[in-house]
Simulated assay, not measured.
Amino acid sequence: MDRAAFRSHFPVTGHWAFLDHAAVAPLPDVAVAALHEYGASLAANGIAAVRDWTHRVREVRELARRLVNAPSADDVFFVPSTTHGIGVIAEGFPWRSGDNVVFPADEYPANQYPWLNLAGRGVEARRVPTRAGRVLPDDLRAAVDGRTRLLAVSAVQFATGFRADLDALGELCRERGVFFFVDAIQALGAFPIDVQRSPIDALAADGHKWMLGPEGAGFGYVRREWVDRLHPIGVGAFSVARPLEFSTIDFTLKPHAGRWEGGALNVPGITAFGASLELLLNAGVPALQARVLELTDYLSEKATAAGWDVYSSRRPGEASGIVSLTVPGVPAEAVVAACRAAGVIVNARAGRVRVSPHGYNNEGEIDRFVAAVRGMTKDQ
């Protein structure tokens, strides 16, 4: 990866040391240009340009397929949020009263509430405690029994940065006949996920974090063998096999994930999202992973040397782009505010400071963060 060339696509570097990609990432210039291009085309042509943008949606679907190595672009469907993608599975799954779903207790709310919402259908939600922020496969295994139908987990935990072993969890699900769902929003774009290598049955992720796209444009994946076993939700004119024959009612659903795209898509968002995906794929996600881990290792070393407590696991295979830390005696929100005043963007989650650099960041920006925190602690 040409680091300088990759970094040149991020205007945010001219104003901020932006270290908060686990929240809402800044757009690269290519995504901004794509939004302008779409707007100009729509203003000048209206529906006369629809074929151009339909073609672009197909191209972006293929980019999303490549990112997760799905067997076909038809296994991918666009979503306006990770929550929507989770809902496709939670509401469409063939539950029976007495079933249960297993997930870590510290999951982001979007990967808890849809499962908790199933109580009225007789489905038990089993929240498995984590251990110092770590999600242990053996703990999840112990919670699975003969009525467990689904295991849901984030690829990376939003508050601690713990990265799950998706291969091991997928194998656990295969052994026990359990559907494996992954909330991938805190990994995709910075860490590879391969749905053919890891036995993942479905995943979902909005594009506005590590995939560097605008909010409201992301994608989901469903393994083809499950398409007809899930009850389709959000069905509309574009869910059917002959979507453009508006005067013919033929309720034959598409035989793939496209059935979950019932209505008009967020075409401008998808267009910009595609530009960001192209940038990431051209840089190479494995190279981005290596760079992100370099930066988080550097940050963790600096933080430890300063006497701060790094909560996130730094074990091989468990570290991610998120470093959760505490500054003794200083509230996390105060650290965030002081950093903002110093031109550094970080965040706070679960009472700790959360720092999340991407592959275009550099050590100098980590140093700015460290200096900003040291500056505030000297004043106290």
Results as ranks from 00 to 15, higher is better:
Lys209Met: 15
Lys209Asp: 13
Lys209Thr: 13
Trp210Gln: 13
Met211Ile: 00
Met211Pro: 02
Met211Lys: 03
Met211Glu: 10
Met211Tyr: 00
Leu212Tyr: 05
Gly213Asn: 10
Gly213Phe: 00
Gly213Thr: 09
Pro214Leu: 05
Pro214Met: 08
Glu215Trp: 00
Glu215Leu: 12
Glu215Cys: 12
Gly216Glu: 04
Gly216Met: 00
Gly216Gln: 03
Gly216Phe: 00
Gly216Lys: 03
Gly216Ile: 02
Ala217Leu: 06
Ala217Pro: 08
Ala217Cys: 07
Ala217Ser: 11
Ala217Trp: 00
Gly218Leu: 06
Gly218Pro: 06
Gly218Gln: 01
Phe219Asp: 09
Phe219Ser: 08
Phe219Gln: 09
Phe219Gly: 06
Phe219Ile: 06
Phe219Tyr: 11
Gly220Tyr: 00
Gly220His: 02
Gly220Asn: 07
Gly220Glu: 07
Gly220Lys: 02
Tyr221Gly: 04
Tyr221Arg: 03
Tyr221Asn: 04
Tyr221Val: 01
Tyr221Ala: 00
Tyr221Cys: 02
Val222Lys: 03
Val222Gln: 09
Val222Pro: 09
Val222Arg: 05
Arg223Ser: 11
Arg223Cys: 01
Arg223Leu: 04
Arg223Glu: 12
Arg223His: 10
Arg224Trp: 03
Arg224Met: 09
Arg224Phe: 01
Glu225Pro: 05
Trp226Gln: 09
Trp226Ser: 11
Trp226Val: 05
Trp226Lys: 09
Trp226Phe: 10
Trp226Gly: 11
Val227Cys: 10
Asp228Ile: 04
Asp228Ala: 15
Asp228Asn: 15
Asp228Gly: 15
Asp228Met: 10
Asp228Lys: 14
Arg229Ala: 14
Arg229Ile: 06
Arg229Val: 08
Leu230Pro: 05
Leu230Val: 07
Leu230Lys: 04
Leu230Glu: 08
His231Gly: 15
His231Trp: 11
His231Tyr: 11
Pro232Arg: 04
Pro232Thr: 06
Pro232Phe: 00
Ile233Ser: 13
Ile233Gly: 14
Ile233Gln: 06
Ile233Pro: 08
Ile233Cys: 13
Ile233Tyr: 01
Gly234Ala: 07
Val235Trp: 06
Val235Phe: 04
Val235Ala: 11
Val235Glu: 14
Gly236Ile: 03
Ala237Asp: 13
Ala237Leu: 13
Ala237Tyr: 07
Ala237Cys: 11
Ala237Pro: 10
Ala237Val: 14
Phe238Pro: 05
Phe238Ile: 01
Phe238His: 13
Phe238Trp: 10
Ser239Gln: 07
Ser239Thr: 08
Ser239Arg: 04
Ser239Asp: 08
Val240Gln: 02
Val240Gly: 02
Val240Asp: 01
Val240Glu: 04
